[in-house]
Design a protein around this nucleic acid. Structure first.
Length: 496
RNA sequence: GGGCCGUUAGCUCAGUGGUAGAGCACCUGCCUUUUAAGCAGGGGGUCGCAGGUUCGAUCCCUGCACGGCCUACCA
């Protein structure tokens, strides 16, 4: 990189100066007694101009520096928050004070001293001892505007986290969201499990996989596109409520709503159906919002949204009819559907199959309207090879997708547990593949064998963690909620 | 894949067909309650990369790279 940077040269000079004085600029340890935020909270009522009785040892990164002759003020930030340091030549003596003024913005520093509040009311640690904990050789981004360059923000996320409060907030909310989700599922009696990411055959979703190779076994393996078929095997094995939170990988385009690797929660619940999963989804998301944000009322991209149950429910067929005038129950073939689309002058991208075409209608004409939390339910069977048919209408299945802020963030159904039907569905998928659909589910003989041992009626649900985080953090792009989003390497850096 | 936009100092950004500026950051000096500290002085640039047009290109043109948005793709 830019190793000839003069600012870096200057800091290397200072680094050498610390070493010349016999000081290790990268020592091993500093025993802290307090976090910044703890002190701010516990001494909230300390009046301006007063000293506390606390002698604190704090450590963190220096983020600002105001040196004014014989007195210096530095801002120190640790993982909890920030606190000001106040150093004077009177306390430290001339030699140590001059050394102290060599501290740069970005350096890690540990200090010990009495905590007091300045005349202007700023809680501060009076520096009596200090230890350089790590010398920073590169300057931090600018203090007013933070770091704006999106490319640097994504490639060097640590700089984004240092410079931008919003980046820290999103990381925190995402972590709390996942934590709250685990607590919720555990309280509901779900067991957390882990299933293979490297799979001999992919399945459980309509997507193209990443392919890799295992040398010792001399075989092709796929990175999972979904956990579904393995979690169902656990239901078959008698684990009646299971869930997994993990990465799925789909070898497809990148957009503001898609990253090639993304995080999904999938849960399966024996003896439940998709109505139970809807109720579970509502309770889970509203509970998470309450725990993480303190409220079920949020704002997403300018829309005020209330996540409290019950959410709206609309049948797939009704939604399409309401927004396009087409009743897909009576337009059953692709040519007929295309005729109806043309007759109504609907602008929608052509798709290779009937199922994909009606799904495209939903995305184009319905999805943008689904701002408040909504379940779209009872999907066409063509789109849902792993879901159970509706009892009263075998053209549709017991499946729903939840939407918030015009974005789908999950998928659920009453799981198909009839092995004969499942085999037929796989065969139908193969027919669709021959018709030009590249994202059909491959027939999984091993899974069918498992199903033939008997799977109880089961409800299954998948929730996109990244998208749920977008919703709870009001983020317009999935790259804002993934710490290290997939990017093309800059030229010349691939080998590094 | 297509369209539009962006790429100028470490960061945030101006700017012009005659090889460049500000603020912050950095360096020097002054300064013992500041917090966007202040005052004075100073250093720092392959203007993304490569071609082309031109007497002369950071600026105009073409190509490329990377990024963003839209679109396509995508349960």
């Amino acid at each position: 990189m830019d190793t000839s940077n003069p600012l870096r040269e200057e800091r290397l000079r200072k680094l050498a100066e610390w070493r010349r004085r016999g000081i290790d600029p990268y020592p091993t340890k500093f025993a802290r007694t307090h976090l910044a935020e703890e002190l701010q909270r516990s001494l909230r009522d300390l009046p301006a101009g007063n000293e506390s009785t606390i002698r604190a040892r704090v450590a963190g990164r220096i983020t600002a520096r105001r040196v004014m002759g014989g007195a210096s003020f530095l801002d120190l930030r640790d993982g909890s928050g920030r606190i000001q340091l106040y150093a004077t030549v009177d306390v430290l003596g001339l030699e140590r004070y001059e050394l102290f003024t060599q501290i740069d913005i970005g350096d890690f520093l540990g200090v010990a001293g009495l905590v007091f509040r300045t005349k202007k009311g700023e809680l501060s640690v009076r520096v009596e001892e200090f230890t350089l904990l790590a010398k920073a050789l590169r300057p931090l981004p600018e203090k007013w505007h933070g770091l704006q360059d999106t490319e640097i923000r994504y490639r060097q996320r640590y700089l984004d986290l240092i410079a931008n409060e919003q980046a820290r907030r999103i990381a925190l909310i995402r972590s709390r969201l996942v934590s709250a989700m685990r607590r919720f599922l555990e309280s509901e009696g779900f067991l957390e499990v882990e299933t293979p990411i490297l799979q001999p055959l992919y399945g459980g979703a309509a997507a193209k996989p990443f392919t890799t190779y295992h040398n010792a076994l001399d075989m092709t393996l796929y990175l999972r596109i979904s956990d579904e078929l393995y979690l169902k095997r656990l239901i078959i094995g008698g684990l009646e409520k299971v869930y997994e939170i993990g990465k799925d990988f789909r070898n497809e385009g990148i957009s503001t709503k898609h990253n090639p690797e993304f995080t999904q929660m999938e849960c399966y619940w024996a003896y439940a159906d998709y109505n139970d999963m809807m109720a579970l989804t509502e309770r889970m998301v509203s509970q998470i919002a309450k725990e993480v944000l303190g409220s079920t009322r949020i704002v997403y991209q300018g829309h005020e949204i209330d996540l409290a149950p019950p959410w709206q429910r609309i049948a797939f067929r009704d939604a399409i009819f309401e927004h396009t005038g087409i009743d897909i129950e009576h337009v059953r073939t692709l040519p007929e559907l295309r005729t109806e689309i043309a007759r109504r002058q609907l602008i929608v991208d052509p798709q290779p199959t009937w199922g994909k075409q009606v799904d495209e209608l939903l995305k184009t004409y319905v999805e943008p309207k689904l701002i408040q939390p909504t379940f779209v339910l009872d999907y066409p069977i063509e789109l849902s090879p792993l879901a159970k048919k509706k009892k009263d209408n075998p053209n549709f299945v017991e499946r729903f997708e939840p939407f918030i802020g015009a974005m789908e963030f999950g998928n659920a159904f009453s799981e198909l547990n009839d092995p004969i039907d499942q085999r037929e569905r796989f065969l139908a998928q193969e027919a669709l593949r021959r018709a030009g659909d590249e994202e059909t589910q491959p027939l999984d003989e091993d899974f069918l064998t498992a199903l033939e041992y008997g799977m109880p009626p089961t409800g299954g649900l998948g929730i996109g963690i990244d998208r749920l985080t977008m919703i709870l953090t009001d983020s317009p792009s999935i790259r804002e909620v993934i710490l290290f989003p997939t990017l093309r390497p800059k030229k010349g850096e691939e080998a590094s």
